[in-house]
Write a protein that binds this DNA or RNA. Structure first.
Length: 650
RNA sequence: GGCGAGAUAGCUCAGUUGGCUAGAGCAUACGGUUCAUACCCGUAGUGUCGAGGGUUCGACUCCCCCUCUCGCUACCA
């Protein structure tokens, strides 16, 4: 019987910098699923890679004084090294700068254009460079990008658009007919309610504002929008050709069985990507899983907070498999998971060192002590063995059930339940007591045989999650790795085999204090803001203005005499601001950073001749100015010396 | 503001179509054991199952209404 195929992908990593542990998690998760499917007997193809185009990279390369290609070569190499370090078993590492990918993207764009799904138009509006996105004036937040909060510049571009609306109904129907398509299911509602049901906007799929991208074949001053470029990696990587000359591999593998992605890019994978595929007359992927994020203790990881964890650092401390174990096991299915050094140590000690490592160690020690390492099934069974065997034989099915639902963390727990059961078996049978009774030698041998056999089965099931550990255990036991088909029998360990006479410690226990001291040395706890101030924040320069332009704006000092939250809104505070002799009502989106109480009495900088507008139904007559850092933290701008309300700022 | 998810033991959570004294893991306490990496095994807990009301013989589970948290989204200068 031919093996059933299973095609799994991760999102391709953006080559703007070194990936943190959260990015790494995704690849490890995909790897665990891929490896498990292989164990089950599937013909698995696992693709990952790097997304290398876009203005952000063009800018980064310029900063670094290298060409974009040199820049992405370096970063892509670093990313690949980390994927390798984590022992991920990908079959293909695609780069969007690969020649065949670029060639195919050009053809795809052309085909969509020829088909009429892409048309030429104009885009006018505010452009956010880092996000490479256009917004209408009304979409902006405080005049800034609604996604990243950075300033936008007015821009007008000739651009190509994709007719999303043409396929919207089909996509809605598809999602309704395939409840498994979007996982976790809660995300499905978000996509339906926020985008599909209200009506899809056409998507701008080309850019002229930068060069580092795949040029549009028939109009080379345009480059293909990064998402159209990036998403198609899933088909170009396995040999798709839109002229009908696709490889056998493509015909076999497509549609993908699972796209594994972060929850932040679900929209691209469950709306735009399926529609692109419809345009190409290709079947849609079977499932898209938007996994949650791995956060570090005190909030989302970010470089400027200085709390970024990198895979290679963690590996230095704990080893590859401990890190794999941690990220896979500590990550819930729907909610974000938390990783800290302390938690890492705790898990390593209790689960890996105590439960698993110690089990293997004590079993091998006893075999050596009592039988010179020879493990023999002398068939001196007792009723207590039946329960152990039954338990062991049930485990593979339970693990598979969890894996089928992508509940990887729960699947690991199932594997470890076997190790716990084996520890209990030792207490039930008390080998050390049997050893003292000469008439119980056969029984003792049988008990040890059952232990070695049970551990062999558990170790084999562990392979998807901790491949290196599986190997190490089996080597020490002198056992073969078991495929799925040989996990349904208890007693396949070759009777008479000899285990190693020098059991190595699988996982050494670590002392939290010592680890934390080392971490402290590695990352001295400097106050981050200082470092950040030094680095400063570079903004995309706006167009030059004249003095007359400046003079049009009237800035004055305003004193906040009262302030309250705007009831119908989450972000807004409504302040009464004294400016000269008059009092104005100004609404500001700063609720997350200031309480109404602390606003009162503050002297702030106000843009007073801004056209009044209604926000959340409340009139706002001006704008209170704030400084904003990269995190979106706001700070009111106040006069350095005492100034009366109404003083002009010029 | 719209849509959605959630609130259960100190912590992290599980509780399938309403039904036996509400569960697991970690942490805590106590007991057992010594083969082993001061490890392993067992026992014990504690819960107004977010607040209030309703339906029912019976509600953690269904309905209504609050409060709070979270996600997505939106015309929040």
């Amino acid at each position: 019987m031919e093996k059933q195929k299973y095609y799994i992908t991760t999102a391709i990593a953006y080559t703007s910098g070194k990936p943190h542990i959260g990015n790494t998690y995704e690849v490890v998760l995909a790897d665990a699923i891929a490896r498990y499917k292989r164990l089950e007997g599937y013909d698995v193809f696992f693709q990952t890679g790097t997304d290398e185009h876009g203005q952000k990279i063009e800018l980064k390369a310029e900063e670094a004084g290298v060409t974009p290609k040199e820049f992405v070569d370096k970063v892509s190499g670093e990313i690949k090294n980390i994927w390798d370090l984590m022992n991920t078993s990908y079959d293909k590492f695609i780069r969007t700068t690969d020649e065949d990918h670029e060639k195919q993207v050009k053809k795809i764009f052309k085909k969509m254009y020829a088909k009429g799904d892409i048309y030429k138009g104009h885009y006018e509006g505010m452009y956010c460079t880092p996000c490479e996105s256009f917004f209408t004036e009304s979409q902006l937040v405080d005049g800034k990008c609604p996604d990243c909060g950075r300033p936008c510049v007015p821009a007008k571009e000739e651009a190509y658009f994709f007719k999303m609306s043409k396929y919207a109904d089909r996509l809605i129907q598809y999602i309704k007919d395939h409840p498994e398509f979007i996982q976790p299911e809660s995300r499905k509602n978000e996509m339906m309610n926020n985008f599909l049901l209200p009506g899809l906007q056409d998507l701008c799929v080309s850019r002229t504002s930068f060069k580092w991208g795949i040029p549009v074949d028939f109009d080379p001053k345009h480059v293909v929008y990064v998402w159209l470029d990036a998403l198609t990696n899933y088909i170009t990587g396995i040999g798709y050709d839109c002229d009908g000359d696709s490889t056998e591999q493509f015909k076999k593998l497509w549609p993908a069985d699972l796209h594994l992605i972060g929850k932040d890019i679900i929209r691209f994978h469950t709306i735009y990507w399926p529609i692109f595929l419809m345009s190409l007359d290709l079947p849609l992927p079977k499932q898209v899983f938007g996994h949650p994020w791995l956060l570090q203790g005190d909030g989302k990881m970010s470089k400027s907070k200085g709390n970024v964890l990198y895979a290679d650092e963690l590996v230095d401390f704990f080893g590859v498999d401990a890190v794999r174990y941690f990220v896979l096991h500590e990550m819930p299915f729907e909610n974000d998971g938390v990783i800290t050094w302390e938690l890492m140590v705790e898990r390593l000690n209790s689960e890996l060192a105590n439960t698993l490592g110690n089990l293997v160690n004590r079993t091998i020690s006893m075999s050596n002590k009592y039988f010179g390492g020879v493990v023999e099934d002398r068939k001196a069974a007792e009723p207590v063995d039946d329960d152990l065997k039954a338990f062991a034989l049930e485990v593979p099915g339970r693990v598979t059930a969890k894996m089928d639902k992508l509940r990887v963390a729960d699947a690991i727990t199932e594997v470890f339940s076997l190790f716990k059961r084996l520890n209990k078996y030792i207490d039930e049978t008390m080998p050390w007591a049997l050893a003292k009774d000469e008439t119980k030698q056969d029984r003792l041998a049988t008990v040890l045989y059952n232990l070695v056999e049970g551990i062999s089965m558990g170790a084999s099931l562990l392979e998807a999650f901790m491949p290196e550990t599986t190997e190490r255990i089996l080597k020490q036991l002198n056992a073969e790795k078991r495929g799925f088909e040989s996990l349904n029998v208890f007693g396949l360990y070759p009777s008479g085999n000899k285990v190693t006479d020098k059991p190595e410690i699988l996982f050494a226990r670590l002392d939290v204090k010592e680890v934390m001291e080392k971490v402290e040395k590695l990352h001295p706890h400097v106050e981050e803001p200082a470092a950040e101030e030094k680095a400063g924040i570079d903004l995309e320069p706006k167009a030059e203005i004249t003095f007359e332009d400046f003079e049009k704006m009237q800035f004055q000092v305003g004193e906040i005499i009262s302030c309250e939250a705007v009831k119908k809104s989450k972000k807004l505070l409504c302040s009464q601001v004294k400016i000269g002799s008059q009092v104005r009502q100004i609404v500001s989106g700063i609720k997350a950073h200031y309480t109404p109480e602390e606003m009162v009495g503050k002297k702030v900088m106000v843009l007073t001749n801004l056209k009044p507008a209604k926000l959340a139904g409340v009139l706002s007559e001006g704008m209170i100015l704030c400084a904003e850092d990269e995190e979106g933290n706001l700070s009111l701008v106040t006069p350095e010396k005492e100034m009366p309300a109404g003083a002009e700022i010029c």
